[in-house]
Design a protein around this nucleic acid. Structure first.
Lengths: 197, 197
DNA sequence: AACTATAGTGAACGATCGTTCACAATCAAG
DNA sequence: CTTGATTGTGAACGATCGTTCACTATAGTT
């Protein structure tokens, strides 16, 4: 039977993944002895070389391994719902990525805020949602910003015509705001997250 | 001047953070020589012990360090918008966490899907949004599920009365669905993500 | 049965690791 | 100036690392 790209035992990969996620580091070969159930470091070595060619780990330095996104990345990205839901058999083909890398460009400038109030509800931002806010970027028309207007913090659409800045809600029950005295943009909303259960 | 818990130089911490995020591993002391600008491994050693007491790294094994969430966690979690937007001076106090850990409980069973269609728009799930779907959990009334009904994949509220399963949209323009022949639940929607720009 | 590839054991090796010691430079406090 | 704490250099150490070699066991193919 022809078996190109033989798949390494998923059980051992699972254990390695669990270890990396829990300890935030690669186990040493001596630790992998227990982890994989081997009694010889050579067996570990051979197995790791397989994982390397399979793309689960990569060489970080001459004698160091580092996990790839394929191993520790949290999420498999599939297509649209309409496009069909891949079956378990197809899972090996899809891409894997980390939510942090996917959503956050500049970690040191990014914050999470919990939204209260319904002034952006027509934009699909509900009370209790979490917004990812990035500080210091260039604000453009149409961006959703976290801003302090005359002492009060809100989330609004940002709009600038000439020299006039307007903060527009996404809710007909509220009026657009034109800052009277002060406007401080706390950051641009890069993503909205709603978490269930 | 009294300086309890003296803050280690932020510049070196930034470099260590960058290294860990880029290489997905701790640098060796010999690598830290270049990274920190030291010429002695003892200087590195002393600095790392400070980072340990400051909570940026922890001992993973007798001679191994691992980064903590404080070092590599992507996001600082702040309060609600109404509660006020913390000033830069207060940033050290807030909690730091990873989006992956925050949103994903079982990485091996979680998938991302892009939503098309507006059948859940009243639940704040818009076309183009991304849903985090977890397979294999126990489905309860009120959960949002990805399901295949009579061959077609959709996102709907899950509702079960007795033996009758209904899939209810969050859009008055659509009708609830009662599966005629087959129902396959592809997973439970654990989170909704909308990414801007 | 003979051959081959795969997978594992056990021991050994040099390289590199994190740690430690002794000592110098700097700076603030008394 | 002296003292003491902090921060750095440079060299040395044993421990552990990843790697490699020789050999055995098993299973599949010819």
């Amino acid at each position: 039977m022809i078996m190109p790209y033989a798949k390494p035992p998923q059980d051992r990969i699972q254990r390695l993944r669990a270890f990396c996620l829990e300890h935030k580091r690669m186990p040493a070969y001596s630790e992998m002895l227990d982890l994989f159930g081997y009694r010889s470091k050579n067996a570990v070595h051979r197995f790791m070389r397989k994982l390397e060619t399979a793309g689960y780990v990569r060489r970080a330095a001459p004698r160091k391994f580092a996990p790839t996104g394929r191993l520790t990345g949290s999420i498999r990205l599939l297509g649209t719902v309409q496009a069909g839901f891949p079956s378990p058999a197809e899972e090996e083909l899809v891409d894997v990525l980390s939510l942090d890398e996917f959503l956050v460009q500049r970690p040191e400038a990014t914050y999470m805020l919990t939204v209260s109030g319904d002034s952006m509800i027509d934009a699909g931002i509900h009370p209790g949602d979490i917004v990812l806010v990035e500080r210091g970027g260039l604000t453009r028309n149409g961006d959703i910003v976290v801003a302090q207007v005359d002492g009060e913090w809100t989330i609004k659409y940002f709009s600038k015509r000439g020299r006039v800045v307007r903060l527009e809600p996404a809710n007909k029950a509220y009026q657009p705001i034109t800052p009277r005295h002060s406007l401080v943009v706390g950051g641009i909303v890069k993503a909205v997250i709603r978490k269930y259960r």
